[in-house]
Design a protein around this nucleic acid. Structure first.
Lengths: 123, 123
DNA sequence: TCCGGCCCTAGCCGTTCGGGCAGGTGACGG
DNA sequence: CCGTCACCTGCCCGAACGGCTAGGGCCGGA
């Protein structure tokens, strides 16, 4: 999420659920000078998104947190998460705690439900 | 789920996600003699359903289990479930256990994820 | 160079979960 | 009348969870 310097190209990332809408946007904005469309919201100056995707983007989940979240959605315990990711149980709990805060959830079940609602994960 | 006796009316229950499809079926089958369309899959001889709804129907969740499942999707603990439903914590755990078995889940998080996949609950 | 974010590890502690077991009640149908 | 099913309650216990505090290593930007 680096700020764009003046004179630089402005990088735009698309985060749209509607594929048709997304391709229309690409056709319209692709040829525009000074603009570059990129994949992945991480290293873009601006993110073009609809409501749900915007909320998901604002969560600012780290790569590791996404890994953990995906495993939580599979009903994995902290121990399983640790084994699957090759980290200690303590670290697994550490990431889970971060997820609970970012997702404003009271527990792992709530976290998965919130994430699914926001479209962060697909059940 | 009582077996239909010969000479009796055959009761059909519809479990279709597609509303348009459902109304077409009702128009076509409604006037047919010897057939009666009913609501609720419980007391029907045959259930007309598409794939996902069929799986959901075969779970045979009781009313109480649906109540508990909805609360689990909100991240409710056994204690919260008990208070909301006006039952003891023991009974809440009892229903949760049944849900885990029927949904083939290893824990409440897994149960909610499975239920969502089957369309039993809407997140 | 220092600061900040991300990732990792660790212990402690009280609460919650989930499995197992053993019951009791009311309703419905054979 | 008796079997079955849904619903309810209880206790035990090991495992898992979630919150807390307290670190260390790495890398990129200010």
């Amino acid at each position: 999420m680096s700020a764009a310097r003046a004179g630089d190209e402005l990088t735009l990332a698309l985060a749209l659920d509607d594929a048709a809408l997304a391709s229309r946007v690409r056709e319209l904005l692709g040829p525009v000078a000074g603009i570059r469309l990129v994949d992945g919201a991480e290293d873009a100056d601006i993110v073009l998104s609809d409501g749900r995707a915007a909320a998901a983007a604002e969560l600012n989940l780290t790569a590791r947190e996404r890994d953990v979240l995906a495993l939580l959605a599979e009903g994995a315990s902290n121990k399983v998460v640790a084994n699957r990711l090759g980290i200690s149980v303590h670290t697994a709990k550490f990431h889970v705690r971060s997820l609970l805060e970012k997702l404003d959830a009271t527990g792992r079940t709530d976290a998965v439900a919130h994430a699914a609602r926001l479209g962060v994960i697909d059940l």
